[in-house]
C-alpha cells in the first residue's frame, strides 16, 4: 500500500472527481486502510457537497445597479478614448462622434461620486470620459465664452470667486467656455480650453482635497492638485511633459 505522503496530492482531485483513472485504485486501496486519510476525504467531500447545495444562495449577491452603471461608463470611456487622434484637426474627429454624444450623455447622468472618492485613477478616468464627451457636445453647440462670463458662472454656480489665468495664450491655451459637469451630478465645474486646437479640460471639484498627482488613464494625462478645499483636475491627450507645463502654469496663475 502507498503511504499517506505519496497519496496526499491525489486526495483533493479524488474528491473533485478529477483524478486520472489509473490512480484511482491506488487511492481507494489506501483509503480502505487509512482512517485519517478517509476522514480527510469525507470532510472535504461533505464541505464540497454543502457548498454545492448552497451555491445558489452563496452566489446570490449581484453587482449593485450603481456599480453596473459605473462599469458601463468605464467601458464607454475606454471605447471613446481609444478613437485614434488624427495628426491635425480635432474638430474633424469630433464631428462624427457628436451624433452619438447625445445618447452617451443620456446615460451619463447617474454618477457615483462616492465610489470614486477613494481612487485617484477612477476619478481621473471618470473625468477623462466627461472631458471627451463635453468637447463633443461643445462642438455641436459651438460655445465661445469670454473669461469674465466663465468667471461669473463659476461664482454663481459654485460659489467660487474664480480668477482664470488672464493670459492663457502665454502657454498656448485658448479659452473655449464652461459648463456644469456631469461628474458628481453637476457638483463639479468644467472649464474647457484649446491647446494648439486640441481639447484641454480643467475640472474644479468643490469641498474635495486630493493628493497632487499626474496620472495616465484611458489615453489621457490627468494632473490633479488641490488649493484650499477645492480640487482641480486638468486633462488632455497632450504628452506628459506638455501637460505638466500647462498644469503648472494654470496652477500658478489661477485664483
Amino acid at each position: 500500500m502507498r503511504n499517506c505522503e505519496s497519496i496526499d496530492l491525489l486526495l483533493t482531485p479524488y474528491v473533485d472527481g478529477e483524478i486520472p483513472s489509473g490512480e484511482r485504485p491506488a487511492v481507494e486501496e489506501h483509503l480502505r486502510r487509512c482512517d485519517p486519510c478517509r476522514a480527510r476525504v469525507a470532510a472535504e467531500r461533505a464541505v464540497r457537497s454543502l457548498i454545492q447545495a448552497r451555491r445558489s444562495a452563496l452566489a446570490a449577491d449581484c453587482a449593485p445597479p450603481g456599480l453596473r452603471d459605473a462599469c458601463a461608463r468605464a467601458a464607454e470611456a475606454a471605447a471613446w478614448s481609444a478613437v485614434p487622434a488624427p495628426a491635425t484637426g480635432w474638430k474633424r474627429r469630433l464631428v462624427p462622434l457628436a451624433l452619438a454624444a447625445s445618447l452617451v450623455v443620456a446615460v451619463a447622468g447617474a454618477f457615483l461620486y462616492q465610489l470614486t472618492a477613494s481612487s485617484a485613477t477612477i476619478l481621473a478616468a471618470e473625468l477623462a470620459a466627461d472631458h471627451v464627451k463635453c468637447f463633443a457636445i461643445n462642438d455641436v453647440f459651438d460655445t465661445h465664452q469670454s473669461r469674465t462670463a466663465v468667471e461669473r458662472s463659476m461664482a454663481a454656480g459654485f460659489g467660487w470667486p474664480a480668477r482664470l489665468p488672464p493670459q492663457p495664450e502665454a502657454v498656448g491655451l485658448e479659452l473655449v467656455g464652461a459648463r456644469p459637469c456631469l461628474y458628481g451630478e453637476g457638483r463639479a465645474a468644467h472649464i474647457m480650453y484649446r491647446y494648439h486646437g486640441r481639447p484641454v479640460s480643467l475640472f474644479m471639484l468643490p469641498d474635495t482635497i486630493r493628493q497632487d498627482a499626474v496620472i495616465s488613464v484611458l489615453g489621457h494625462e490627468c494632473a490633479i492638485w488641490s488649493e484650499g478645499d477645492r480640487t482641480f483636475v486638468m486633462i488632455s491627450r497632450e504628452p506628459r511633459n506638455d501637460m505638466r507645463r500647462i498644469a503648472s502654469f494654470v496652477h500658478a496663475s489661477l485664483r
Binding site: 475606454a78 478613437v83 481612487s119 485613477t121 499626474v214 496620472i215 495616465s216 489615453g219 505638466r244 503648472s248
Partner: peptide, 29 residues
Amino acid sequence: MRIRRAPRPDAAARAPHDGKAGPAAAGPT
C-alpha cells in the same frame, strides 16, 4: 514645479500598458 507625481500611484496606473490599443481601438462600434 508644483505638480508632482504621487509617491504611490494607484495600482491601475502601474499596469504595464498604455491603454491606447486593443479590441476597443477600432472604435466604440
